[in-house]
Amino acid sequence: MEALLLQTLNGLDKGGAYALIALGLTLTFGTLGIVNFAHGALFMLGAFCAVGMNELLTISTKVKDESITFFDAYKEVPILEAKFPVIGPIIVDYSVPLAILITVPLMLLIGWVMERGLIRHFYKRTHADQILVTFGLAIVVQEIVRHYFGANPIPQLAPDVVAGSANIGSWLGMSDNVVYPWWRLIYLVFALVIIAATFAFLRFTTFGMVVRAGMQDREMVGMLGINIQRRFTIVFGLAAVCAGLAGVMYTPILPPDYHMGMDFLVLSFVVVVVGGMGSLGGAVAAGFLLGILQSFAAMNVFKTIVPGIDQIIIYLVAVVILLFRPRGLLGRKGVMDA
């Protein structure tokens, strides 16, 4: 029973990341009609925003080390801690949540630049061309990040206050030994909040209404006199922000490295296809579903029946769904059925 609960939480956690990335991907695919292979790179950029923020906050200066007395030794101390002995360490400790503050504007900017500079010219080209050019862009972004941050994963730490584990066993009436890391619970809640915010934005604002209309029939919206082009740029920025936020908060769970974009890209496409290309609810549902499936498949119970099932379960599910229900779980009939 405990194992089941833990794995469900693990699955929801991972699923949250998948759902957020897939949400951005579906937004661009449903609204703009663009297949964006650089979306994984946006996730990776978000994660590296956290790394960058950490480096920014820990710009250090040399301070005399009092503990060594026989010669003059200096140690590196972050300026924030040196100048503000009380608040400084707290700020440095909270570098990951604070990174959200720079991630949102930075990802918006990157999304805006990507859309205006490159994606805009590919609306009329075939899907294969879009795939190829965004794949190329993903490689370029990956290499630039690798050049500046190096090829090794750079672990980021969650703030100290939440670095431990929550005693969920006692909340749910189970034994006291059932624990789960606080940060992962926070991540799950965070992902749900962002997803809810995006849905609320799309449902309750005029802009959201235009975007939803554009997803249904882009040409018609243009013919009604609405400047869909500018809306597209903002939608792309929004998708980039979703991916970036997913990345930034995921850093304590998975140390960011330059290759994580490509790894998550395949999974996010599989999620989008299972959920239904163009269906936002489907993308989110499929994200959580596949996350849970992957976690359950990693349990020993299933591994003994079919060894290695955890590696391939997602792809198997994708193949089955693509063959028997090509519009995905919640896709609309007639959209990309061929």
Binding site: H127, V266, Q311
Partner: peptide, 21 residues
Amino acid sequence: RRSGIYFSILTLAFAQMSYNL
């Protein structure tokens, strides 16, 4: 059995599956 982008993603899924296996 599918074409276009679905075909590409199917082959992608198979490639990753083979790699993991």
